[in-house]
């Protein structure tokens, strides 16, 4: 594995892991005792930043989901989430995120296996890894433009296929739909999967497959009993990261569909812009709902990982 791959990949790959307590002195607040002023100076900006710009806003959103305009406790905001429109918006967001995460994970895994284990020329491997670094960050507005230019109503592929006698829009395809969004999201989901899973695949020792084959296992049996079970925690972790990644995306969907698809992020965006009702309580409730869903995905991952990982050190 070349050095540059290691750089991007390792920083990505460590992202979904559970928090490991560091070695050494770890007692609740015990470390504060022997702290020196210079050391304090080094960590205070970080902690201040974390509290002000990550923890406090989240906390604020969670709390205001339960407050009315006068500042009194209420469940009205939460109840508002169960209106038909908002339920539908959560549902379409979950559908697109889950589908693009699952398909992205499967396709990304297949491509990663092909380039890492398929005996393809080595330049393919390095090109794919570099491209993945680029494409996984090529999200948002420019990505929407690219897909509009490709399979939009006037896109190159649409026009080309029409010329060949196949009108995909008459056939039921629409870029501004569930499948259109999923197809677009895959453009950053697949590369992200490749980047995260590649180090894990490299971690599969060659001897494992060799040992399996001398024991009479077919390639399929190796993957069924050894390869996939070993990768399983990583696959799950990546799946939950891909889900959260798609679930929080605003720009791609907004630039692609405007308001025509009722994604929950776009609902929230409209709430904040005041384009819609401008009910801050409902906005907070929407945000809380989003936090709950992405946190839920991560909790499922942590639980399954803890169970699957007995055999890992």
């Amino acid at each position: 594995m070349s050095n540059n791959d290691a750089n991007t990949a390792s920083l990505m790959a460590r992202v979904p892991g559970p928090v490991q307590p560091g070695p050494g002195r770890f007692s609740p607040l015990g470390f504060i005792a022997g702290i020196r002023p210079t050391e304090l100076l080094a960590v205070v900006p970080f902690i201040l930043f974390a509290v002000l710009f990550l923890i406090a806003p989240t906390f604020y959103v969670v709390v205001s989901a339960f407050l009315d305009r006068a500042g009194n406790f209420t469940l009205a905001n939460i109840a508002g989430l169960f209106s038909e429109q908002i339920r539908a918006s959560f549902w379409i967001s979950i559908r697109v995120s889950a589908t693009s995460a699952i398909l992205g994970a499967i396709l990304g895994l297949l491509i990663a296996l092909a380039i890492l284990r398929g005996r393809l020329p080595s330049w393919i491997r390095s090109t794919v890894m570099t491209f993945s670094g680029v494409a996984s960050n090529f999200a948002g507005i420019p990505l929407a433009f690219a897909f509009l230019a490709t399979v939009g109503r006037l896109g190159l592929i649409t026009v080309l296929l029409k010329f060949l006698g196949l009108d995909i829009y008459r056939g039921g395809f629409n870029l501004l739909s569930f499948w259109g969004l999923t197809l677009t999201y895959l453009y950053f989901q697949i590369p992200l999967m490749i980047l995260i899973i590649a180090p894990a695949i490299d971690g599969l020792k060659k001897e494992w497959s060799e040992a399996a084959s001398t024991l009479g296992a077919s390639t399929w049996q190796f993957w069924r009993y050894v390869g996939l079970p070993v990768l399983w925690p990583n696959l799950l972790g990546t799946l939950s990261l891909l889900f959260a990644n798609a679930f929080g995306a605003v720009a791609t969907a907004y630039a692609l569909t405007g308001m025509s698809i009722n994604m929950v992020t776009i609902q929230l965006y409209a709430q904040i812009r005041g384009d819609a009702l401008g009910d801050p309580g409902l906005g907070a409730a929407l945000a809380l709902g989003m936090i709950v869903i992405t946190a839920f995905a991560n909790v499922i991952y942590l639980v399954v990982r803890a169970r699957a990982e007995r055999w890992l050190k």
């Binding site: 020792k205 001897e207 060799e210 084959s213 009479g216 077919s218 050894v226 055999w311």
Partner: peptide, 20 residues
């Protein structure tokens, strides 16, 4: 193919399947 030879092999790095 290796899987058809019915040969046992022990490797330098143990190569036990870690998930079993």
């Amino acid at each position: 193919a290796p899987s058809q030879r019915n040969i046992g092999m022990v490797f330098q790095a143990y190569a036990l399947f870690p998930n079993m």
